[in-house]
Design a protein around this nucleic acid. Structure first.
Lengths: 232, 232
DNA sequence: CGTGGCCTTGAATGTATTCAACGGGGGTGG
DNA sequence: CCACCCCCGTTGAATACATTCAAGGCCACG
């Protein structure tokens, strides 16, 4: 494990409050791995042997049933996934695969559970992390159920614009077919959604996005912190 | 508060491990209230002043945006809701209303947070409860995204059948319009879904449900613990 | 006996997916 | 260096799934 990564991990809210001995014993069984794109990391139904921490790259959580598949969430650095399964010692409810190449820390679930039992600070940190995860899923679910595809795209673009300085010009740093999946629609449908946003002053050429008026786009998107603010 | 309720509350996984002094101070600020049907208990966006525990009746969690509304979950005794908002001291992400008349315990969030800080056992119990809530939402989300309305109904009926002894005869103890909302569809659509299940040996007259062959219905429903088992 | 609510049914509409076809750009191999 | 090919993105048409709107039946209740 790289030295600066170690510091970075210890700085994570989830681990920052740990006693030194807890943190050490957690890392003793841990290892880091680099994965190429499109590798399946875990499969739903399997026992949750490791808590995963995404240090670099992007991971997609998805679920399948009866030959169908749907994207549930996207995890970017630095964040954990399948914490709940680890804690409950239950099976994964979702599968995960890398989207871009990714660097991931694997912490044996048994260690996580042991330290959770022994170190009250860790238990508290887990509560906060879990609350965050829970609320993220709720927000994603609201986005999916309450908005149609054009509205989801509009809100996504507004969010990205702000992340990139809010000057109405930024790069879509993601393949369109992945974006489509991320937004819960087909690639074809995304094409049409992009087209229909022209009326609201959105221009997308290749990966270059131009929003002529955030006001106008906002009148369609109607963003709200109760869905769109990750910190809420 | 009724005496037997107090015992019942203390028996909840969430509270059973508490130190006696913690439990007492938690109850000091608590109160119990009876609500008629269709009362709005909390509104999304409001600060999370109380942790709610449903002792009796049914509560629906729902979310709104831009004039639309969708049911997110249904809470039945004995369970808590909005634990995550309470812990994070954040705003509610969902609204809640009673469906049937309900008896609910209200625990001031500030007390919950204080005891969470002071009593490590409580922190652990909260982690388990939160994990449970999280996984429930994931399962509900999978049900919604991976299945169409007929399949959701089929799985619902199979589950209810088992709850009622699994003899293929039971009572739909819920209004159809509510069931429709619970299953994420309109009342009209539920009517049609019921009709289309006739081919699979399902007969619904009024509130009496008859499943001629759980096998046949199962071939359509394809239930899986990764979506349908609440204990998973 | 009337009335209101719940349920059902039909028709029209909307949203999104599927299937098929095509264009263009980047990379590879000749 | 160029031709080829593959993959991504786009577009159109057909289809699937679900909602909306309108109307009518049934039952319980006053």
């Amino acid at each position: 494990m790289r030295r600066n990564e170690l510091a970075e991990i210890q700085a994570l809210p989830l681990f920052s409050g740990l006693r030194d001995d807890s943190f050490e014993s957690l890392l003793r069984g841990a290892y880091v791995q680099n994965f190429p794109p499109q590798i399946e990391l875990i499969r739903e139904g399997d026992p949750a042997d490791f808590l995963h921490v995404v240090v670099e790259g992007t991971v997609e959580l998805f679920a399948s049933w009866n030959g169908r598949e749907t994207t549930m969430a996207t995890v970017r650095p630095i964040a954990t996934f399948i914490l709940a399964a680890t804690i409950k010692d239950g099976p994964y409810l979702m599968s995960a695969r890398t989207v871009e190449k990714a660097r991931i820390i694997l912490l044996p679930s048994i260690d996580v559970r042991n330290i959770f039992e022994a170190d009250a600070n860790f238990a508290k940190a887990i509560v906060l992390e879990l609350s965050q995860c829970y609320r993220s899923v709720i927000k994603a679910s609201k986005d999916m159920k309450l908005r149609n595809s054009v509205e989801r795209l509009a809100n996504y673009l507004l969010k990205k614009d702000i992340e990139n300085g809010g000057n109405g010009q930024f790069d879509l740093s993601i393949e369109k077919r992945r974006l489509a999946s991320y937004l819960g629609m087909t690639a074809e449908n995304l094409s049409r959604a992009i087209k229909s946003l022209k009326d609201y002053g959105v221009e997308i050429e290749g990966s270059k996005v131009t929003i002529k008026s955030a006001e106008t786009l906002g009148s369609l998107a109607k963003p709200t912190p109760l869905i769109d603010d990750p910190a809420y």
